[in-house]
Amino acid sequence: MIAPVGAQLRKGVAEYCILGSLSREPMYGWQLADALKRPGLIASIGTLYPILSRLRKRGLITAFEKESGTGPVRKYYQLTPAGEHELKAFREQWGPFVEAVTEMVGANSDGKH
């Protein structure tokens, strides 16, 4: 069975969306999941933690614990220098990639597909 197109697209860019989110500020799991669920980039928090684990194993992010002030200690994630480098490389390739795909699958000038 072929996965729906949206799921395949999300799977391909989810790691980079996480890196992009963490480039702005360190975030804890639920905070990051909410930021990614709103635009539909992940289905649930359950899909986030395996991705975070892979990113940690690849040395692209690291985790640290911090008091929340309102409850238990939270685990925050942040980019490593390797993660910053990976994100920079992705950003350089993303624009040309989107343009190429749009040209290949986009509508003709007369609006027909």
Rank of each mutant, 00 (worst) to 15 (best):
L79Q: 08
R24W: 02
G69N: 09
Q8C: 10
Y16K: 02
Q31I: 06
V5C: 01
R24F: 03
A3P: 08
T70M: 13
P26A: 06
G46H: 08
T70S: 13
A33S: 01
G71D: 01
F90Q: 07
G40A: 01
R91T: 12
M27E: 14
W94E: 09
Y49P: 02
P26C: 07
R54P: 08
R38T: 14
L9V: 09
A107R: 12
E99A: 14
S21M: 11
P50W: 00
M1F: 11
L60T: 06
K66C: 00
R24I: 00
L79W: 07
K112V: 06
A43G: 00
K88F: 12
S21C: 12
D34N: 06
I61D: 04
I42V: 03
P81C: 09
Q31R: 08
I51P: 08
A33G: 03
E86H: 06
M1K: 08
Y77H: 08
G46W: 06
R58V: 07
L9H: 06
I2G: 02
S23K: 01
T70C: 00
W94N: 12
D110A: 00
Y76E: 02
P39E: 00
L87A: 13
S53Q: 13
N108V: 03
G83I: 04
G12I: 07
G29S: 09
E25A: 09
K75E: 14
L41I: 11
A63W: 00
Q8E: 07
P96H: 00
L19C: 02
V105G: 05
I61A: 14
K75V: 10
E84I: 11
G46R: 09
G106R: 07
D110S: 00
R58E: 15
A82V: 09
K75Y: 04
A7G: 10
G71W: 06
T47G: 12
L79N: 10
V73S: 09
F90Y: 15
C17A: 04
T80L: 09
T80N: 08
I42W: 10
A3M: 01
I42L: 14
K88R: 15
G69F: 07
Q78G: 15
Q93T: 15
G95V: 14
Y77G: 08
L9D: 04
P50C: 05
F90M: 13
I18M: 02
